[in-house]
Design a protein around this nucleic acid. Structure first.
Lengths: 131, 131
DNA sequence: TTTCATGCTTACTTTTCTGTACGTACTTAC
DNA sequence: GTAAGTACGTACAGAAAAGTAAGCATGAAA
């Protein structure tokens, strides 16, 4: 069983040339969406608007710096909407854009699969360790 | 799939407590699956078995070191099957396990979404740059 | 005989990522 | 007056990821 139905590597590459070729913008977006905190922020925002400090409490382990950074990436990519109220103390709300919701659904699908598949993966780990 | 319709945010949050809590094993797996080269390797293997050097040519930009590393991660997680024939020169074949195929489908769904959504994302970038 | 291809491994360097600590502006509470 | 909360920005440092270069075993082709 080698390659599927006689497609040249070139033909296959052109199907999804974007991702397989270096220095294509999709990789940037992928990096943001799948970054350590990006995944968790997207999922956290799936159930509505949150303030900065609420997100920080929700996503355990993020530093303020990384949360701010991650939110900026996602905002620049059009995934997250930021609404800032000019009051003191500051009040800023974050939510998913329609685009962001679509992305979050895919990310969550992957995350959910991992969690439900952890027992199977754990079994593989155990088997490897036993050798 | 895991979550049924009409669940409260709290109930949903508890489902995925694992991902939100630090130092949980799911994050390891997520890291491997969404690593820079992990994504591309999984997608490349979606259309059948490949040899090491074939993957290297296919996934443009990987170094041998990183490809080997990535394949080892995926193998340890039970996503990729490695078959080595004891001949000279070496001949090693990589393919997806059933588990790996499930994962690859989710990863590809995300990747495909990004590629088809790039025009929209690019428009956001352009709008931001114009300000 | 020299070269090449294969599938790695190891050592070393560079780049990127992430965290810590601190500052800011302003108001309310003590 | 001083501390706390808010949503950041910034400088620096350490950790982690990735790249580079080289080596290895071996048989076959040039």
């Amino acid at each position: 069983m080698s390659n599927a139905p006689d497609r040249s590597p070139l033909a296959l590459a052109m199907d999804r040339g974007a991702l397989f070729s270096e220095a294509c913008p999709s990789r940037e977006v992928l990096k943001h969406l799948t970054s350590r905190w990006g995944v968790l922020v997207l999922i956290a925002l799936m159930d509505g608007t949150h303030r900065f400090s609420a997100l920080r409490r929700r996503v355990s382990g993020v530093s303020e710096r990384m949360l701010a950074q991650t939110l900026q990436w996602l905002e620049e990519d059009g995934m997250v909407a930021r609404v800032s109220y000019p009051v003191v103390p500051p009040h800023v709300e974050y939510s998913l854009t329609p685009l962001g919701r679509e992305a979050a659904e895919r990310v969550q699908a992957l995350a959910d699969w991992i969690e439900t598949s952890m027992p199977r993966i754990g079994a593989v780990w155990a088997a490897n360790a036993a050798e």
